[in-house]
Design a binder for these strands. Structure first.
Lengths: 149, 149
DNA sequence: ACGATAGTACTACTACGGTAATATGTCAAA
DNA sequence: TTTGACATATTACCGTAGTAGTACTATCGT
């Protein structure tokens, strides 16, 4: 399952993945129940999606009696980053500030959110400063702890 | 052309839209040329896409001699916001700070970007403070200047 | 007048997300 | 032991992005 194309997830697939990420494992019935009403999916819809998703390498399953227990085969971080970066690159030319600017004017943001954003940026500035002091360029952070298994 | 589903744009459609946003107007040949090599699309591929996109209300055209001159029918801001908000809501539960946190650890961000982010947040805090003082709730900013025509 | 060129229109096909009905198999209870 | 509940497997259909060949048409240069 190549990490490529990890940003192409439809809404339903995403919701299913979220159930699996949350629970670790889940049978078709459990996923189906977790998705609940609004709209009410047919049981077989979920089963079919899960099989298609397994073919794409997004999930895996093991048999437990008659039932299949599914689990995610890709980490939430990978998907989140993949999709976020895709939008960032395709729509905002990779400029995080441009994207944030759009989102700040497009929706309500609570004071807590703003404070948290500020904290993140200060934190990042601190790290950047330190790295720049130690060595210029060749910054090798992010130990890629985004593996599963 | 309903604003709904404005976040479902494939990569090629997006690239075509970007050409139109940049130039205001463009013939099929111009779009095709602007997309250039890597990969080299067939001329008819672009023409077909443009026709499909017109059917979806993304672009419009007028005839100029034999040729069609296309222009965007939706503003870049609408699409950018639509797609960014979609990812934000679906993947990060609407939390901007969570998304930024992911992106900050996922990629390099220049000092200038960080400074700009900081500026944006300060700016936004200032506005929020003012609004809160004037009235609590019922904040009616964003004059929605995202129309085209 | 005529053929080359440059347009659009039509048609077709693959891939995939979404959606689900139907078929088939299996286990357990009556 | 038959039946019903529950499970997966198979099949099918729609929409749409992507990709492009082929057909038709208008115009321009000679």
């Amino acid at each position: 399952m190549p990490r490529s194309q990890l940003h192409r997830l439809g809404d339903l697939q995403l919701r299913i993945m979220q159930v699996l990420w949350q629970r670790g494992e889940a049978t078709v019935a459990e996923v189906h129940a977790a998705l609940g009403a609004r709209p009410r999916f047919a049981y077989t819809t979920i089963a079919t999606m899960l099989r298609k998703m397994e073919a794409r390498g997004l999930v895996r399953h093991r048999a437990q009696g008659r039932a299949f227990v599914y689990r995610a085969a890709v980490a939430e971080r990978q998907v989140s980053r993949g999709m976020a970066e895709h939008v960032l690159d395709r729509l905002f030319a990779g400029s995080l500030s441009t994207m944030v600017s759009h989102l700040l004017t497009a929706r309500e943001v609570s004071a807590e959110e703003l404070a948290e954003l500020e904290r993140l940026i200060q934190e990042r500035k601190r790290i950047s400063r330190k790295e720049t002091h130690i060595k210029k360029g060749d910054a090798r952070h992010e130990p890629d702890s985004s593996r599963l298994d």
